[in-house]
Design a protein around this nucleic acid. Structure first.
Lengths: 214, 214
DNA sequence: TTCGCCAAACCGACCAGACGGTATGACTGA
DNA sequence: TCAGTCATACCGTCTGGTCGGTTTGGCGAA
């Protein structure tokens, strides 16, 4: 992201520019997640954001750019959190199960917190320009590879089962993450933390070494 | 395969009408699944199907109608298969785990077979007209309720765990089903049957009664 | 303090084209 | 002749994007 990274924030100056970007992005996220990307017009976005089309096109080069900015923010955030949890686990010398549990619970909780982003992600990824789409795929793969390293370590140490391809285990877990927006509601009986804990527990149990396995 | 199962084929009659419908639906499915619903124009569909717009609008009332027809076919098919498997299990007196296993493996395998439909389903459900969308939701709920009945039976019989809400168990399983189109490729190393068996096994292990549970 | 100035921020009218959908009528087999 | 089937031409609407011009605010010079 960091499109507005170099905006110098002098005290007292209300930095209008960042505000416009924020408002537009917020409105775009809201509309994309409820109506879908293709059915939301730029006109609608700028109206909801309270700015004009001219202002929007001053900061974003295209409608596609808005979509990518949303992805970018989510991908960066989740990757940073993953890195941090893995690093902390390593320096503490935690058991691989505990690290994986922390990772899983965090990504579920974060995905709930950023559910609109997730909705847009699932529905509209194929609408991105091809190069942007490739970039998104690349960064997702990076994330999965770091996740897979944990799985492999657990398999090598004999705490996770080795009879199912890691690719399937990865898909098995991230399916839950991506599916959240299809069923979870914060108004329902379950808190985000409960969902995170229970889904993680289900996953960990399914990948645990089978009783009779060598 | 036999995707066009109930088409009545009168001898010698080239059944043009059904052909037009089929061709249009096939083309729509193909384009919707690769480009997305909103970004595919009616013009493209009829061109790919080798018919004209006039012909298409003779059989379908709107573009929305095409989308719904795709959903309708998939929902009907999977519901019918579920009903049949449950009924067969009941008359044979099979154990609930075995019935559930058969159901899970079948829905995974079927979802792989009809993956384009699944892709469209996931991406474009929110583009349907509100009443159609409600109809889709209603039929999905029906399906889930029948699935939930199996879970409840298993919980009552003490073979499935009772400490996680059934709603979450349902979501946990169907997340795998919906996520298939995001990662599975028939050209990859895994056959559909293998994926069905392994995902089902992962699910069944995660919902099995915990060792220390009462 | 005030003025002049300039770059960045922003405005909003405008465009070419594509869209979903329709009106009309020709063709065809019964 | 008549109902069903389809081709063709067309319509009004809306889209993402552009562009010439205007406003704004910070700042050096007077």
């Amino acid at each position: 992201m960091s499109r507005a990274a170099e905006v110098v924030t002098v005290k007292d100056v209300p930095m209008r520019t960042t505000n416009v970007q924020d408002q537009v992005l917020r409105a775009a996220l809201d509309l994309f997640s409820t109506q879908g990307y293709a059915t939301t017009s730029v006109q609608e976005i700028v109206a909801a954001a309270g700015v004009t089309k001219g202002a929007m096109y001053h900061y974003f080069s295209s409608k596609d750019d808005l979509l990518f900015a949303i992805y970018d923010r989510l991908l960066s955030l989740q990757k940073a959190r993953l890195d941090e949890i893995v690093a902390r686990g390593a320096e503490r010398g935690d058991a691989v199960e505990d690290v994986l549990r922390a990772v899983c619970e965090d990504v579920v909780a974060t995905s709930i917190e950023f559910m609109p982003e997730g909705t847009v992600f699932t529905r509209s990824q194929h609408m991105l320009m091809p190069d942007r789409q490739a970039e998104v795929k690349r960064r997702r793969r990076e994330y999965h590879e770091e996740f897979e390293a944990l799985l492999r370590r657990g398999i090598d140490e004999g705490v996770f089962r080795g009879d199912v391809p890691t690719a399937m285990l990865i898909a098995h877990f991230f399916s839950d993450v991506h599916y959240l927006s299809q069923w979870y509601s914060p108004d329902g009986p379950l808190t985000a933390a409960q969902v995170a804990e229970q889904l993680t527990e289900l996953f960990l149990r399914s990948i645990g070494r089978a009783p009779g396995e060598d």
